[in-house]
Design a protein around this nucleic acid. Structure first.
Lengths: 223, 223
DNA sequence: GCAAAAGTGTTCCCAGTACACCCATGT
DNA sequence: ACATGGGTGTACTGGGAACACTTTTGC
């Protein structure tokens, strides 16, 4: 038919490193493999690109199939075309990271029909398909993305406390942040807006809830 | 044979946005298309992935075929799988940027058998295959990469003057930099090393030549 | 001696950092 | 009352930004 069909064609897989944040720790969702290769090991969720999907569509579809979630923040960060990762044959893998709101998807309760389980981001088991390198790249890409764009909020519920935000950054970058300095800095960011709501159900002084206002973000940076 | 062959397979192309730096301006190498589609338009050089190459191998091979250069700095930055870019059929495109040393590849002289021509990075013609968006992403990726890693030197000859380095940064980020502040900052970076050589053949006071020392860079940042 | 770019110091300001105590709530 | 995390101010320091003149070379 066309000249394009004379060329080499390749199967493409899309893997998504799903990040969440719960109980004061950054978490990653992994799937336990039920069959060989790598039966019993844990792996980054993913699947084959099919038909006339774009890679973004594949990522969203797989994410919905595996977590039930839609409208999730997804960002591609790497293509891996090295040999020998899948013993069944060669694939080209496009890797994404996904950020999900712990409010919408309850994580640590993981008696799931989905075989998916949350793991603390800094204590993962060995991964199938030699995905450890991809995971490290995902972490790096996430850190750069969080510094560059206002996407940390994708990991938080719509209304969050400043302590939640602070601990999230501490987790992401593996550092300790001074509370007063952090709050002074946040106070200058007019797109992180205080509400008159308070956290409820805690056994201490209730914290003020904040939200991220995208419109103010754009005004703030003249976008 | 294997389960993988039941899946959808896709032709993959690799495009490389080639950046150079000459005559005080950031430059981009484009190819004039000799046939339809988009005959007569300019395009980012690229080609099909073949056989059991990795995408990196494809990028290096294409770059060698089109410029004759080997050992070029290449970095992937995006996958484009949208429809309708190539009217001949659907392809999945992995985009790289390449950085080349203007000393090795003489740019502005472009009476080339290769149909390749250098264009000022901020005055490109409209691009074939709707590659304008990919080019914008390449510029962004280059800026982030230059801020993150010591790769600006890939665009310069081995020995360069501080004014060359300064103008390169001004070009990359579209800003004006104060000469004294810039030099003070460079002086603190022990991996940018002064030689006792001087620039020759200029009609003014000759500038000291510097070089980038990777070993000192790693020591400097404890890598 | 003139044109052209190389090279050089000081001041100011803001952002980052270090640091300790009182407050509001639940039990 | 006590335990727990929420919330606040000040002083120091280092890096970025603004700014103008002398020096060395080729012609």
């Amino acid at each position: 038919m066309t000249a394009l069909q004379d060329r080499s064609n390749y199967p493409i897989t899309v893997d998504s490193v799903i990040f969440g944040y719960a109980e004061g720790a950054l978490q990653v969702a992994l799937i336990e493999r039920e069959r060989d290769p790598f039966k019993g090991m844990w792996a980054i969720p993913g699947g084959f690109m099919e038909g006339d999907e774009t890679v973004e569509e594949t990522a969203h579809r797989e994410l919905k199939e595996e977590t039930g979630l839609e409208s999730i923040y997804l960002e591609q960060f790497h293509v891996c075309s090295s040999h020998g990762r899948d013993p069944r044959g060669r694939t080209i893998t496009v890797a994404f990271f996904a950020l999900i709101d712990s409010d919408k998807y309850h994580m640590v309760a993981s008696q799931d029909a989905l075989q998916a389980k949350w793991w603390p981001a800094y204590k993962l088991p060995p991964l199938a398909f030699h995905q450890d390198e991809i995971y490290q790249k995902a972490l790096q890409a996430l850190r750069i993305a969080v510094k560059t764009r206002p996407i940390a909020f994708e990991l938080l519920p719509k209304f969050f406390t400043l302590t939640q935000l602070q601990i999230l950054f501490e987790q992401l970058f593996g550092i300790a942040i001074d509370k007063r300095n952090f709050r002074r800095k946040v106070a200058k960011m007019e797109f992180i807006v205080a509400t008159d709501k308070k956290q409820e159900g805690e056994k201490h002084r209730p914290a003020t809830l904040y939200y991220y206002d995208q419109k103010r973000y754009k005004e703030f940076y003249n976008i």
